[in-house]
Design a binder for these strands. Sequence first.
DNA 1: ATGGTCGCCGAGCGA
Length: 266
Amino acid sequence: MKIATFNINGVKARIEALTAWLDATQPDVAVLQEIKSVDEGFPREIFEDMGYNVETHGQKGFNGVAILSKFPLEDVTRGLPGGAGAGREGVDDEEARYIEATVVGLKPVRICGLYLPNGNPAPGPKFAYKLRWMERLQARAQDLLSHEEVALLCGDYNIIPQAEDAARPDAWRDDALFRLDSREAFRRILNLGFTEAFRSREAGSGHYSFWDYQAGAWEKNNGIRIDHFLLTPQCADLLNDCWIEKDVRGREKPSDHVPVWVDLAA
DNA sequence: ATGGTCGCCGAGCGA
């Protein structure tokens, strides 16, 4: 089963590039972030006509996540648990950043698609929201481990895990994507027992999943690696491969992110 | 270089 996570930065602006990419690469599952669309505005028929089952969790203008799957999608849930009690009533659930579904291929896999808050400027209320959101993600991640599920959490984490995941780490030192407290929160989740799929297969530097639209970042290869797959042990046992599809960034009207893939024996 | 570029919508925010 080939699964790609892809922050598409707006489904309406990306529909041509996205359908061409699906046609060419044929993922079994595409986990999308920043659809920037309400559920009713998502062009689901286009993807259904390509053979995909479609589940979305959108909102007006910003954020929004979706899962496209050639296999059936079961037990779909929208929103990260713990929002109502995490701060003021319901506040954490106003942003559509999380969706889960079980993909039933050779073996069922629980797929968790996430768009983790950016958190800038830090410190401040947006950064506090990011850290609170990561605490909730950690709780959900612990549940998946405790139940020994074949599961993965993938998406735009807005976290640069290590210095080798940025072309210019010094430029990100105080940014919400690379601050020590952000990286510590990410490591707390990872250290519960997850495998970070890409890092497990590639120890080196210079592999990025995002290049800013500004200041010629792509042309200078001034990138960062912020789109990740975290696998439970039961899922890591099925990992065949993980790679970043870098060349997508150089195509016509690209997203600022590129797809990251895993191939599972599932 | 106190900007630079996108996408949401149809001004200014978020990234």
